[in-house]
Amino acid sequence: MKEDVVIRTVTRMIVPFIQLFGLYVILHGASSAGGGFQGGVIFASAFILYGIAFGITEARKRIYEKITTVAASLGVYIFAGIGLLAILFGGNFLGYSALPLPLPGPEIRGLMAEFVEIGIGITVMAVMTSIFYDMASKEEVE
């Protein structure tokens, strides 16, 4: 299967579109169907498709396991950071309208909701890719 030129070419062509669709789902999560979790899963499925078509070792060269570990923590930090920032300015946890930005209230809420969705998306993408690496790799990793 590794030598099959059709699978490799189609994968190489379709992966950017899957990633673009994942980003679209993440960024339009607040206003329509979708959200950080679904977009992150779609984004991770692009890496999983790459790993299936080219092999795990080739996929590990594209996105390192160190990067997935760091990204999984980074998304949680973005989420908790925005929530605690609102507490710092005297609001509730994730009470976006307390943030002192020069914008009307609904716009601040929309903007910060997008940042929280991006954080969720980063974490879900990293964790899904990491689970796939652990499940599909044959060798024992300590």
């Binding site: 789902v25 979708g34 679904q38 899963v41 779609i42 499925s45 899904m128």
Partner: peptide
């Protein structure tokens, strides 16, 4: 439905 299609049928 979106979540079910992405997670259940995909991942």
């Amino acid at each position: 439905a979106f979540t079910e299609a992405a997670v259940g049928a995909g991942i």
